[in-house]
């Protein structure tokens, strides 16, 4: 059996310069700060850290998915030094539509856009994510895959499990998003400025010999536990 270090070494991307972005321009940095402040103001998001601390170590934040604003608001709720190192995974079909959205996603909040319609066997999203984050960046993912209509947290897809398996050294942090689906529900364009809450839970890891289904349901329960 491979030790975690071996697995890490194997899955770590080889090409230089892919993982670490070049230094962002001051305009993009300023736009990033403004965007984060606006997102927090608009969504009235308050961040809670429950038995957990913000940290710049490599992490995967996994959250329930309720609104197009999720990726942006979770990212904006992180403290600035952590935010700099964190890339939300977002749907390519939504975020690459139109000049503004694409600029925001690619340059300002540095999203990792995944094409949900074109998933190939040899180019799985998990491999792409691991290659993009290298050894320094963190990710925000939504393991349900798509936004829930009812506000209930759906079953988790297996991507999170493979992430955890290929990079056992990364901390997995459960995140619960509350009330954001009322700020911008599915199918709506204009947001209503209600109040929302982003809760970060204690980090977890894939246990030795833990089965995929067990791990995914444990991860889902960790998100639900933050609901209270």
């Amino acid at each position: 059996m491979l030790s975690p270090a071996d697995i890490t070494a194997q899955s770590r991307p080889a090409p230089e310069g892919v993982a670490t972005r070049s230094v962002r321009s001051p305009v993009c940095r300023a736009a990033g700060l403004t965007l984060a402040a606006m997102a927090r103001l608009l969504s009235g998001a308050s961040a809670r850290w429950i038995a957990s601390q913000p940290d710049t170590c490599q992490r995967v934040y996994f959250a329930n998915h309720t609104s197009h604003l999720d990726a942006l608001v979770v990212w904006a709720s992180l403290p600035q030094p952590v935010r700099e190192l964190t890339r939300p995974v977002a749907a390519k079909d939504y975020w690459s539509r139109g000049m503004l959205r694409r600029w925001l996603a690619e340059e300002v909040f540095d999203a990792l856009l995944i094409d949900r319609t074109d998933i190939k066997v040899h180019q799985s999203p998990v491999d792409l994510m691991l290659r993009e984050i290298g050894t320094t960046k963190s990710l925000i993912v939504f393991p349900e895959g798509s936004r829930s209509v009812t506000g209930e947290v759906g079953e988790f897809k297996s991507g999170l499990y493979y992430l955890a398996k290929k990079r056992p050294d990364i901390e997995l942090v459960p995140v619960h998003i509350d009330n954001l689906n009322r700020v911008l529900p599915r199918g709506e364009f204009l947001p209503v400025p209600l109040l929302s809450c982003i809760s970060f839970g204690p980090p977890m890891w894939l246990e030795r010999d833990e089965m995929k289904a067990d791990f995914l349901s444990r991860a889902r329960r960790a998100v639900l536990a933050l609901k209270e």
């Binding site: 009235g44 308050s46 961040a47 809670r48 509350d178 009330n179 109040l195 929302s196 809450c197 809760s199 209270e228």
Partner: peptide
Amino acid sequence: DHGTLVVGH
């Protein structure tokens, strides 16, 4: 009291 449906507000 000091109601917060969404915690923290």
